[in-house]
Amino acid sequence: MHKTDISTKAQTHIWPASGQVAEHVLMYVVRDTRGSGLDGPDQLNHFPASPFCCITWMLEGELALVQQGKAERDQRLPQIFLAGCQSQYGISGNIGERHSFMAVFYADAFHALFELDLSIVQDLFVDARTSLNLQGRALLEAVALARDDAERCQLIESHVAQYASPLFANPWSRLRKMGQNLSLRLSCSLLGVGERQVQRRARKEAGLPLLGLSRLWRAKRSHSQVLLGLGQGHTPNWAEHASTQGYADQSHLIRDCKDISGRSPQQLLNDARNRESDWMYRL
């Protein structure tokens, strides 16, 4: 576990998934603003477009979705909500003090574990208790009643281990690891279907169209490399970074970053260093 914070009291705790479960679950995130006195813009939560499916348990407090891309939203989110894969960046707002636990799943694993057609939750935030299969709904309630975060992680990992057998032959795990090298021809070969079927299966089983997935998988690796470099004391050279991460050039990197976060890489880096509301970009 590690934590990241800017304010002296608002806390973000992160656990990576363990063992073989890490093939299917990226991480667990706890956000706790109790006693922090956050107000105004610090009560917001900026988030990027994402190729992941996330379940969030609001243990205390509530959230409202206020923006997706450039469009305003006004949606009070359920106490246990599922965020499908997101093709746009967005903003949510805390309603009161917040204590939440989030599990971040690879989308293809989420589809297989919970038997959900991901195309129907793309870009949506829905009540998880009405979206998952019977076993998934039992997991939601068990996690909500758990004593602490360690037990919450253990419950999810036990569930994944119990129902992971369909995942071992899942070609999507191989495809997502290939990232920027992903092509329609290769996807057809690995999935054993034609081009139209690949696109349908991509949205149903992996959450987004094939091109969108490839861009977001690349962006996730790019983001991880920036965080790794910062942790080692290195200031990003964006031209070099673009070259090593599979972008055509720095302009390509900037365009993608703006599509995914609403900001250029340098703007995003500056904001994440200085704004409490950009805590998610520090993960």
Rank of each mutant, 00 (worst) to 15 (best):
M1F: 12
T4Y: 03
T4Q: 12
D5K: 09
I6F: 13
T8G: 06
K9H: 11
A10R: 14
Q11A: 05
T12L: 12
I14A: 05
P16V: 06
G19S: 04
Q20M: 13
Q20K: 04
V21C: 15
E23F: 04
V25Y: 06
L26Y: 15
V30M: 06
G35W: 15
P41Y: 03
Q43C: 12
L44C: 07
A49S: 04
M58E: 14
E60N: 12
A64K: 11
L65R: 09
V66R: 08
Q68N: 13
G69D: 04
A71T: 02
D74H: 11
P78K: 13
A83Q: 14
G84A: 10
S87Y: 15
Y89M: 06
G90S: 04
I91K: 03
I95Q: 15
A103W: 00
V104F: 12
A107M: 00
D108T: 00
D108Q: 02
A112F: 08
L116Q: 11
S119M: 01
D123S: 11
L124E: 08
L124V: 08
F125T: 08
N133R: 06
L134V: 00
R137S: 09
E141F: 12
E141L: 12
A142E: 07
V143K: 02
A146H: 03
E151N: 13
C153R: 09
Q154C: 09
Q154T: 04
E157Y: 08
A161K: 11
S165H: 06
N170D: 03
R174D: 13
L175C: 10
L184R: 14
R185W: 05
S187F: 03
S187L: 04
S187H: 02
S189D: 07
Q197M: 09
V198H: 12
V198I: 05
Q199W: 03
Q199E: 09
Q199K: 11
A202Y: 03
R203Q: 02
R203M: 02
P209W: 14
G212W: 14
R221G: 10
S222K: 09
Q232A: 05
H234Q: 14
P236K: 06
P236F: 03
H241M: 10
A242C: 10
Q250S: 05
S251V: 14
L253P: 02
C257N: 03
C257P: 04
R263S: 07
R263F: 04
P265A: 08
Q267E: 01
L269D: 03
D271V: 09
N274D: 10
M280R: 11
Y281C: 01
